[in-house]
């Protein structure tokens, strides 16, 4: 049997807006993926630790506070340091267009802003995850 895609949905930083993260977590689960949700208030270190322990293929970061440039890139750096560079990292939230190129450069492969459909996220993950 084919191994299910394992996804960590994570809320780094102090941001408490978890509606989007929870809706996406539900949608990914309904799409047949195994979903682990970190809950709120995660440091970069905590997110990466959980990703290692849970042996995930994908990390989905959600942040609406505006701290994404610091926290998303912290996580991407840390993953590379720990030899987890092949985990697919995607992010969503209130992210201005002008920040997207720098986030992609740092290793966040997909950025999904407000209004993104759940289907779009599911398709992106299926197409980009390393099997």
């Amino acid at each position: 049997m084919e191994r299910k895609i394992r996804v960590l949905v994570a809320k780094p930083g102090l941001d408490g807006h978890d509606r989007g993260a929870k809706v996406v977590a539900r949608a990914l689960r309904d799409a047949g993926m195994e979903v682990i949700y970190t809950g709120l208030h995660q440091t970069a270190e905590m997110v990466v630790q959980t990703a290692i322990q849970e042996d995930v293929d994908v990390i989905g970061l959600s942040l609406l506070s505006g701290a994404h440039m610091t926290l998303f890139t912290d996580i991407a750096e840390l993953l590379k340091e720990r030899g987890m560079g092949d985990v697919l990292v995607v992010g969503g939230g209130i992210i201005p267009e002008e920040d997207v190129p720098r986030l992609k450069e740092s290793g966040i492969k997909g950025i999904f802003g407000p209004g993104t459909s759940m289907d779009e996220i599911i398709t992106f993950i299926k197409e980009n995850v390393k099997g």
Partner: peptide, 18 residues
């Protein structure tokens, strides 16, 4: 801001980026 909402000063480690 978020650090204030959680009762942290701006120089607290968890305030990073916020």
């Amino acid at each position: 801001d978020y650090p204030t909402l959680y009762g942290y000063d701006t120089d607290h480690p968890l305030a990073r980026g916020e």
